[in-house]
Amino acid sequence: MALQSLDITARSATTTPVPTARQTTKVAKLIDISKCIGCKACQVACMEWNDLRDEIGTTTGIYDNPRDLSDQSWTLMRFSEVEVQPGRLEWLIRKDGCMHCADPGCLKACPAPGAIVQYSNGIVDFHEENCIGCGYCLTGCPFNIPRFSKKDSKAYKCTLCSDRVAVGLEPACIKTCPTGALVFGSKEDMILHAEGRIADLKERGFSNAALYDPPGVGGTHVMYVLQHGDQPELYAGLPKDPGISPLVSVWKGIAKPLMSLGIGLAVFAGFFHFVTAGPKEIEEEEENRS
């Protein structure tokens, strides 16, 4: 997208400033789990809009279908049966997919210039034509989202319909959601909307209802309203305090420049040793004597 190239906040493996001429509003998708009925219309809409067709799988005894995210399935309803209070079964259905972190671990880990970009509206997008297929994004992601294609060895994930959002449309999943569990707008508005929902849930006895916008990744541009905000793990293992792994932070943070500097210094040390101490030569008479 020609215009999109003007509003990039961050670009993978790029050390110079990115084009930030256009400032766009920060957007967010809000997923209200208390309103979700698990109809999977969002999965269908995602396939339709993005022209994706996953392989027909086999049933594994649970409602999750397909069984996992893939290069063809960028969003997936995950069904959890839990008893938060004994004897009171709850069916928690979480629409899984890219969270569009403000501090994206995938982008931090990516070594291919421009394979991952973050737009100024907050969307984190993979540009597969620049992807080299190394899989580093898998190590960076705290939510286990990117999936490798077996066909082309490139990583795929939810784009938050960056193509639709760029022309003022809402993402396909939002468009199709029949219950209003999915809403989309400016991040600010979505937080306000969530506050209303949380107040409502609290009134109805969900005293721990909360917004999931984890600060460990700088907040996300896909947020959840959780009935049990104190226990996000209940929702098919949603991490309580996600963050980029310290290993990845060290590797793509301090190690990258310091180790590169170390190699450069070693080469210079050799060169300057040579021009100061000089080569180790055997004196000529020694050479002749033996």
Partner: peptide
Amino acid sequence: IWQPWFAPYFPIWLMRLAVVVHA
């Protein structure tokens, strides 16, 4: 971390460790 041949058989936490050790 050898994609796509071997890496899919390892858990992500091990891949994270491996990238640092490899570097």
